[in-house]
């Protein structure tokens, strides 16, 4: 295992320390692994979080116009309720707090329990659950779809809405609209290695890739051979467009790298994706290309489409200033 780390047990703490050193406008609460804005604003507080290993998510989205606090779990493990509670406390300015949760049972259980704890402290807490990954079947029977890179759009839009001074209900409405309008699909070309485990969680042959792989290395829907950028763009778009009708609409587009995929490849993929969308009469209003929701050193990418209306366009364009996203 080649990683720039010290003790595998301390990666999260040391990373968060490194983040606040680079971003002195952020504050780090050690032990509970919370990153929050140093200067608080009087507004609905936004809290997101989840397992570590998805950097810049989630701490990288704390700042003006996006999150008020991010809560880090251990690598790929949901943060515990006491941590989330601290995030809620730091984000709360009396206007209530919205939790942006990704749809994993671990996250849901921990955030739910934290919500109960916060409510015992008379903090009003609402939550939304992001489930954008079309690789997984939508289901009410089982846990259903995972939340992946589309979460970043939810941070952005709900964050912009909260910054306008809107009420908790209004911010929640926007977050839910964003969730309803967002679809993602990813694929992996090489695995990642958990620092505490020391070897890859799965293996892919010389010429194999996996379509629909999750951001924790959870298996995908199809193992296949290496594809060209044209083919990949087709596969990823097809799954997304089959699931939700974006025809005729304007969209936000995110071409996201999983950690080890160079920007060159993401831009080449973007080139193909935009061609396909143009053909399908889908107009790209704004594009984000980069590492937004990663999976340690996994090689691969995901594509996210967000259907926009006038309200969401304005919120997407609203200024934000965080380590990982500045608009």
């Amino acid at each position: 295992m080649k990683k720039i780390i010290n003790n595998p047990n301390n990666v999260v703490t040391e990373m968060l320390q490194g983040i606040v050193k680079a971003n002195p406008q952020l504050e780090y609460f050690s032990g509970v692994e919370v990153i929050a804005k140093r200067v608080k604003e009087k507004k609905v507080g936004l809290v997101s979080g989840g397992g570590s290993g998805h950097e810049p998510a989630h701490a990288g989205y704390v700042g003006k116009g996006m999150l008020d606090a991010a809560v880090a779990g251990n690598v790929f493990a949901s943060p515990s309720p006491d941590r989330v509670l601290k995030g809620i406390q730091e984000a709360n300015s009396g206007e209530g707090v919205l939790l942006i949760i990704k749809n994993y049972s671990g996250d849901i259980m921990n955030f739910d329990m934290a919500k109960e704890l916060a409510e015992m402290e008379d903090i009003r807490v609402e939550s939304v659950v992001v489930k954008d990954d079309v690789a997984v079947e939508d289901s009410t029977h089982s846990t259903g779809r995972r939340g992946i890179a589309g979460t970043v759009f939810v941070h952005k839009l709900a964050g912009a809405k909260a910054t306008t001074g809107a009420s908790l209900d209004e911010v929640k409405r926007v977050a839910e609209k964003a969730i309803t309008n967002t679809r993602s699909m990813g694929m992996a070309m090489a695995p990642c290695i958990l620092p505490g485990v020391g070897k890859a969680g799965f293996e892919l042959g010389e010429n194999q890739i996996e379509i629909g792989m999750g951001i924790h290395g959870e298996p995908g829907v199809q193992r296949t051979t290496v594809k060209t950028a044209v083919e990949l763009a087709e596969i990823l778009c097809e799954k997304i467009l089959a699931d939700y009708d974006f025809t005729g609409s304007e969209v936000g587009l995110m071409v996201n790298g999983l950690g080890a995929t160079p920007l060159m490849e993401l831009y080449i993929l973007n080139n193909e994706i935009e061609k396909i969308l143009m053909e399908k009469n889908i107009r790209v209003y704004r594009t984000f290309v980069g590492n937004y929701m990663t999976s340690l050193e996994m090689a691969g990418c995901s594509v996210t489409l967000l259907k926009l209306d006038d309200e969401l366009k304005e919120l997407l364009d609203a200024p934000c200033d965080t380590p990982a996203m500045k608009v």
Binding site: A77, S78, S105, M109
Partner: peptide
């Protein structure tokens, strides 16, 4: 409390 806060993840909150 110890398991819940140390472990995190699904098992942490469940055993907690």
């Amino acid at each position: 409390m110890l398991i819940m806060s140390t472990v995190g993840g699904s098992s942490g909150v469940l055993y907690g």
